[in-house]
Nucleic acid binder design. Structure first.
Lengths: 180, 180, 180, 180
DNA sequence: AATGAATGAGTCTTCATTCAT
DNA sequence: TATGAATGAAGACTCATTCAT
């Protein structure tokens, strides 16, 4: 029994420390040697906890995806009404944008690793469902919001300065005022 | 006398035929052998026209980026007023979305290939400038629209069915009615 | 814990086993695959201990050059007077000629590998200095002897039978009788 | 009939222009592209006049070897007596040393190109025979002289400044005084 | 359980040679 | 005959994975 906890903790630690490298370099450009160094463990240890490189990348996406949703839901729960939740969402985007953008990069890589796009697609829908559950917007507004969120993450990667956070925040506030 | 070749045409052909593979697999996962096969030339020919793999990927982004802008501007020019141009933009997204999404994938890879993010960032701004010039929206609307466009491209990659084109089209139309 | 290895011993072993191949084929004609087979290790191991082929060739020259001088000095030290040392030198040439000729081949390659001829030239001067120190001949005699030694090594490569060892031995003996 | 002369002239031109590159880089490091550029012809032309790279290197040695002997004999013929010839030989070494050293490099490479050392060995003996014929020294002196000549060429490659031409010249003069 | 040296298939790239023009 | 673009086998080198310690 005590071992299992350790194993999961080790795996989680490896995944967390792998995140940055996979997001920055892309699956195909990450080297096991570089990964081991970034994680701060030996190559052998990586292979002790994961069967191969692909498994790390795939587990990584699941891991960080789950964390992101949990954090998002946790934070949006800080307010009861939709307007408040939207404000918290804008806050979340602002201080977690870099991390979310990295998660998106990892998701795009993950999509390339699977022949069937199922896992990645389902994960995206999970994100969307969490949004639905928290905000209860009408479908059209939510669809727009979802594209807007993803788009702002992409822009965060390609041109962080080019993005006007206030504009996005205002748009979200306007959704709070429209119907639901 | 040796074979007479149009060097620029050959380079363009290689880049066009490379596009799909780089977009689908990502720079680090593309193999020169696979690339040669996909392009339909010998490995040697690839190296005759480009110094190395990296140069192909970098030229590729410039090449497809330029083409995309040219096509977009060409199509938006089909209408004089903003509302018409926005309708044409929605049309463009609809029938060229897959290609534009691929360009985005290539752009994200390109960003990872350069230590300084200058080229990629400048390219993104070029896209944005073309939008400004064609639509003349106020900055806030344009900022939103830009995120929305990029977001819909990302969704096209991760979950094409999850995207409601009509919603996005309606949003663009609403921009046509608002001020400028 | 990983295998514990004596890095210097491994490097020395690789160099010793590389010697023959580089001497026989010349730097440009040696293939890493052939080298690995000749050394009796994997290609990967060669690259584990040396950054590249060039580094092997360059280290090789330093390694065998040092060994040759050590052996020569060791053997000439077997006698106290100049005549005796000259006799020992002739003996050394006779039973180590093939190896010394190989070292010369490696030295000539080494010269071609560096843009500046410094290292190779300095090594040659080191050989010469060892001679000076051991024999204490006048400069002219030593100069002649040095050319003679190198010439006999070249001939050993190009036409071993064409060389009259006794003649060279006699000449060396004559140097023992002349002034110093 | 007229064609044959042209063909031979072209071949000779290619060989002469190849000499320097082969001597400096060694057979295995010479590239056909670099050779074509050095010679000032197209790669196609090289293959028009020689079946392959190896044939060029092998013809090269024969070509420059023949030229060297002819020039040496021609110059030694400028004097009737042995002392004079030895003086001319020293002169020859002094102003043609660099070229002769290159020939030696080419010879050493040539030796590595053939499985049987016949051609190279025979060429060396031809040089020796020319010496015999011109100088008529006793065998022992000639043997010494031959090693000395080759040794001075090697030193010219490895450390040109370290060689005392006067010492070598004096030695040759001393041979002129000794018996024959 | 942990390490990292060792392996060698597979990568990018080169280059002798061919051949269309 | 001459050219150099094209080819792809072979070269140097990398790197995911294994395994002795």
């Amino acid at each position: 029994m005590p071992r299992i906890v350790d194993v999961e903790a080790e795996r989680a630690h490896i995944l967390e420390a792998s995140f940055r490298l996979f997001a920055e370099q892309g699956y195909g450009s990450v080297r096991m040697r570089g990964l081991a160094k970034a994680v701060g463990v030996s190559i052998g240890k990586l292979y002790h906890y994961f069967p191969d490189k692909r498994a790390i990348a795939q587990s990584l996406f699941v891991h960080v995806g789950r964390q992101d949703i949990e954090e998002a839901v946790g934070r949006l729960s800080g307010s009861e009404d939709r307007a408040g939740k939207l404000r918290l969402l804008a806050d979340f985007l602002e201080d977690r944008g870099a991390r979310l953008a990295s998660t998106l990069m990892v998701a795009l890589d993950h999509r390339r690793l699977e022949s069937e796009p199922d896992t990645t697609r389902d994960a995206l829908r999970l994100y969307r469902a969490a949004l639905t559950q928290q905000l209860g917007l009408d479908e059209a507004d939510e669809d727009l919001l979802f594209s807007l969120l993803l788009g702002s993450l992409v822009r965060q990667v390609l041109d962080p300065e080019g993005l006007d956070a206030q504009v996005h925040r205002d748009f979200m506030e306007s959704l709070g005022r429209s119907g639901g």
